[in-house]
Every structure is written in structure tokens, then in C-alpha cells.
Simulated assay, not measured.
Amino acid sequence: MKKIIYLIGSLMMLVSLLVACGTNESTKNDSSIKEKKQTSVAEGIRFTISQPKKEKKQELGKEKILYTFQVKGENVSSNSKGLGSIDFVLETTDRKEVDIDPTMATFGDELKPTKSLSGPVTFSLNKTEKPKKLIYKLGDKKTAEWDVKE
């Protein structure tokens, strides 16, 4: 079963270069990002996530707010894992899920056991929207989430 999941995940990575493959294990972390960085484990990956940096951006004459998290993932399992910016969504206070801003820098690759990968995860919100949770999501499955404090 794990070989099939790995094969499907590998094919998805070839198509998008940023899609992560998953396993049947699931860990939900309701950790707050209160400190400068927060560490937790989900799906065999140890995540270290920074507080978001907040910047203004002009987009088509409208002012947007960019929230950029620095994410580091270390594979703590015995199987290769995929990790990328595309695996994250930002939930707002009105429960809307926002995908990453495709115009900003992203990262993604396969993680061999004991290897790590890091990079930015950036979301663009309207001035009236407020971030609530950063969510690590594989397909439709929320595998980890962290409360965001501005």
C-alpha cells in the first residue's frame, strides 16, 4: 500500500513539482505560533514554522497584505516524503481557505529520510481579511494546523 501511495505521489510531483506524497498516518497539531518559531511533527515530517512577516503589496490597483511564513521540514520517517509550498493553505477568521500567492517565491522537493528542506510560504489577503490558521493539507486532508497570531 505504501508503494502505491509513493508512486502516486511521485507522479504528482513530476506534474506540479510541488505536490507532496502522503501516507496513511495522520497527526493533528493545534499548536500556536506564539513564539518566533514553532516545531511539531505531522505525516513523518518535523515542521519548524516562523511567525509570519507582514508586508503590503499593490495588485491591480488594490492594496493586499502578504503573510510570509518560513517553513522548514525534516523527514523523520524511514520513507521519502514530498514537501512544498503548495501543501499549505491559510484559513482566515471568516473560515475561508486561501491558497499560496503564485506570484511569490515557492519551494518544493522530495525529502529522503533524515533530509530537510526549507522555504517561504506566502499568502495574499485583502486588507479586511485576517489570518487564523496555517494548515498543512495533503489533498483534501488537513494533517496539521497552527494558530496564527499577528
Rank of each mutant, 00 (worst) to 15 (best):
N126C: 00
L90F: 11
S77I: 01
K81N: 12
T93Q: 14
S80N: 10
N126M: 01
I100V: 10
F88T: 02
F107T: 02
T106S: 10
K96V: 05
T103D: 15
D87H: 02
N126Y: 02
L111Y: 14
S77E: 04
I135T: 06
G82D: 09
K127P: 01
I135D: 12
S78H: 14
K130H: 03
F88P: 09
K137W: 03
A105E: 15
T93L: 03
T106L: 04
V76A: 06
S116E: 14
G84V: 06
K115Q: 15
M104L: 07
S85F: 06
L134M: 04
P102W: 11
M104T: 14
N75S: 01
K130C: 00
K132H: 10
M104W: 03
D109G: 09
D109H: 13
I135W: 13
K115N: 14
G119I: 03
F88E: 11
L83R: 04
L138T: 04
T103L: 14
K132W: 08
T92P: 12
L138R: 02
P131M: 05
T114D: 15
V89Q: 15
V121Y: 10
L117K: 09
E97I: 03
T128V: 07
K112M: 08
L138M: 09
N75D: 08
I86D: 14
D109L: 00
T128C: 04
E129A: 13
G82A: 06
L138G: 06
T103F: 11
S116K: 02
L125S: 05
I100M: 12
D94P: 02
L90Q: 13
K132F: 08
K115H: 14
L125C: 07
N126A: 12
S124Q: 08
